[in-house]
C-alpha cells in the first residue's frame, strides 16, 4: 500500500459521501402508506361453517347393517358449508361475501381477512354472519358505534364462545 495515501484519502472521501447518501436513503424519505386521519379496520374470522343442516337420521335398516360399535344415528357431509359475512359501515353495505371452507375435502374452517381504511371519527359498524345454510336470517349479528382515532387499528373478530368481537 506504499504510496497509496492519495488513493486512500480520495477514495475514502468518495466512499464516505456515498455512504452518507446510503445511510440517508436507509430511513428516508418517509413512506406514507395511508392518507392522514385514517383508521385501519380489519374484519377477520376463522370459523367453521355449521354442517348440521346436511345431517340426516339413518334408517333402522341402515343402522342394522353397521357393526354395533359404529351405529351412529346421524350421517353428515364431510364438507362444511361456507360462511356468509356482511359488513355495513354507517348503513352502507361495504362487504358481503361467502368464504369457502378450507382443506382439500372442505372440512376445515372458513377464513376471512379483509382490510379497510376509514376516516377517523364516529362510525356505526354492523356485522352479520351466517354459518348455517339452513338459517333464514343471520346466525350472528351485532352493531356497534365506535369512535376511531387517526392511526388506530380496529379489528372485528369472531370467537365461538363470545361471538362477534370488536376490539
Amino acid at each position: 500500500m506504499k504510496g497509496r495515501l492519495p488513493h486512500l484519502l480520495m477514495g475514502g472521501a468518495v466512499t464516505l459521501v456515498l455512504g452518507l447518501g446510503v445511510a440517508w436513503l436507509s430511513a428516508s424519505p418517509a413512506w406514507r402508506n395511508a392518507p392522514e386521519n385514517m383508521a385501519l379496520l380489519r374484519l377477520s374470522f376463522t370459523h367453521s361453517g355449521d354442517r348440521s343442516a346436511s345431517c340426516r337420521d339413518r334408517t333402522a335398516e341402515e343402522l342394522a347393517k353397521l357393526p354395533r360399535n359404529m351405529r351412529q344415528t346421524q350421517v353428515c357431509d364431510r364438507r362444511r358449508p361456507p360462511i356468509h359475512v356482511e359488513l355495513e359501515v354507517d348503513g352502507a353495505l361495504i362487504y358481503s361475501a361467502e368464504s369457502a371452507p378450507s382443506g382439500i375435502a372442505g372440512s376445515g374452517p372458513s377464513r376471512l381477512y379483509e382490510r379497510l381504511l376509514l376516516p377517523a371519527g364516529v362510525h356505526e359498524l354492523t356485522v352479520r354472519m351466517r354459518d348455517n345454510p339452513a338459517s333464514e336470517a343471520f346466525d350472528y349479528e351485532a352493531t356497534r358505534e365506535v369512535e376511531l382515532h387517526p392511526g388506530q387499528s380496529f379489528v372485528i373478530d369472531f370467537r365461538k364462545d363470545s361471538g362477534l368481537i370488536f376490539e
Binding site: 436507509s26 430511513a27 424519505p29 402508506n33 395511508a34 392522514e36 387499528s153
Partner: peptide, 21 residues
C-alpha cells in the same frame, strides 16, 4: 441507524421511514 417508535398492534403505522434499498 434509526430506531422508530415501538410497534403497537392497536395502532397502524401510516407513515414509516423506509429503507429504500
Amino acid at each position: 441507524a434509526v430506531l422508530q417508535g415501538p410497534a403497537d398492534l392497536a395502532r397502524f403505522p401510516s407513515t414509516v421511514g423506509l429503507d429504500w434499498f
